[in-house]
Write a protein that binds this DNA or RNA. Sequence first.
DNA 1: CTGAAAGCGCTTACAG
DNA 2: CTGAAAGCGCTTACAG
Lengths: 331, 331
Amino acid sequence: MSDASTPRRPTATDVARAAGVSRATVGFVLNQTPGKTISRSTSERVRDEAARLGYRPNGAARTLAGGRSRIVLLVLPDWPMEHTLRDYVEEAALVLEDAGYSLVTHTRRSDGRTRPLWESLHPDIVFGFAPFAPDEVASMRDCGIPKIFPDPARGEPFDISLAVSAGPRLQVQHLYDRGCRSLAYATWAPARPPFLAEARHRAAQAHAHSLGLPPLGLRNTDHRDGSADLAVREWRDTGVTGVAAFNDEVAAAAVGAAVRAGIRVPEELAVIGHDDTPLAAMFVPSLSSIHFSTTALGRFFADLALRELDGRPLPRREATENATLVRREST
Amino acid sequence: MSDASTPRRPTATDVARAAGVSRATVGFVLNQTPGKTISRSTSERVRDEAARLGYRPNGAARTLAGGRSRIVLLVLPDWPMEHTLRDYVEEAALVLEDAGYSLVTHTRRSDGRTRPLWESLHPDIVFGFAPFAPDEVASMRDCGIPKIFPDPARGEPFDISLAVSAGPRLQVQHLYDRGCRSLAYATWAPARPPFLAEARHRAAQAHAHSLGLPPLGLRNTDHRDGSADLAVREWRDTGVTGVAAFNDEVAAAAVGAAVRAGIRVPEELAVIGHDDTPLAAMFVPSLSSIHFSTTALGRFFADLALRELDGRPLPRREATENATLVRREST
DNA sequence: CTGAAAGCGCTTACAG
DNA sequence: CTGAAAGCGCTTACAG
């Protein structure tokens, strides 16, 4: 009945007819359904015909029939970690792909006026780096999203600092090694979701403690609202000589403010950033930073998502010690 | 048969039963199907029951039955324009949402090893800022993607510089106004997709020409490979006094190299960036830049996608003159 | 070891 | 003006 001139995309029925088997058998072969032992010759015939016809399963039909979409929706908060984020995501997507899932990313803004993507995409899991807001959780429940990570139902949420502690530890150790004994931690404006910043600060704090140093005071260091200028003056007046920054932008703001205030970097104030973004190498003076193996982190997060999907237990601790120090002019 | 304890998501059948109408009528009311005149009281009853039950149509079923997914897949290249990009996307998503579409973004890397998202998502259109590579087009065709933008089949591709000419024009005008008569254009490393850079360069070129200035030489200005250092020396030796940069990162690289080479900014070399990113305000000296109204551009792109989807003609020229000059220390 | 059949939740001609 | 029915392309018990 269909127009012969329309190059209709082949369906499983077409493959079945070409291979001389039933439609169901095609599904069993191509999905490697466990518990089905299809003869080798049949399998090969099906696979060959599928390849020859360029068969691709229809995602909507699979989702409808199977009750799952094989989509992992990764919600990215509005954070300043662009450069590294892409590498995480690419690596995570690879791991998930091997497991038969597609990774879709979704940048959700705090002031967002758009509807969340989980309303239309029906992902099997919504995965976030930070806990979701109560109204977001409610919306996901209404949409019938089967899994949420971090799971709001779980008493003790997964501690993301397990995955991010290596960098802050190196920052503190490096400042310590070059002789700084009074340290501070510089972070971004409080308007941004503070989840990752808190985790990194905690990790820095813990390492400082283990070195016998006093606690690191936390300061917002922004070049736009004058807080960076205030911070450097306070550090000078209170004898702080080393600053670990949440990321390279924060470090740049701190160094910029110090230079303008006549404070010599690194002689009077050493500052180290995090993420080793292009900005770090470009800034004058160039910024020491922490280079992160993004592939390891990407794999870590993908593994987390797959464990949730399969109902397997989450890891208690993480050995992603793939951070390395990049020393430049600012320390 | 289903477990009563499972809070099953309501379907159109549930709504139909609750409202005392047929399943089809529910669809007609909720989709406002043209050509169907449902009585007002019936419509209201259906809508009320749908709201009461918290009904949400199943996307997979709609896609399967309707033959379209109502998904717009926006392919973002691996470009350094993060800060502004998010605002574009948010605004475009809003416009598309009003038209019943969901916007999904997909960052496709040149060296990407992951499978493209259009294989699993079945979008109604794949929308890119730059033309797609031949193998990408072939892959989309195989997947049965009905629309591609920019359309590879169309003889003359849509000229994206229609949308981006205002910024470069302002850059050149500003340098001209402060007395620079020998200008150059600084761009990013050639490894990056040069599409947007070319469009901006063309626009700058055109405006310089209209001012009676000689053509702007194009230089890659990267802080990593030494090209920035080479460029500033060449500019000094050839009497270039004003540089329009592709974006703020490029401008930062140029200014950084100039400072290191002992060239005074802006007295000997004025540099203006583009996008007005945080980096521009933070850099020492702070960078003049172009602030772009991202909402206008987002709406422009959404309109483009909707025209393609509906088969309506594309606009021939664009009046998105929403760029403004932000003057700082570097000019 | 393999296949016939029901069903997922919609849309859309078609018939009244 | 409204509804009964077929069908989209899969998955998955179930029966042989």
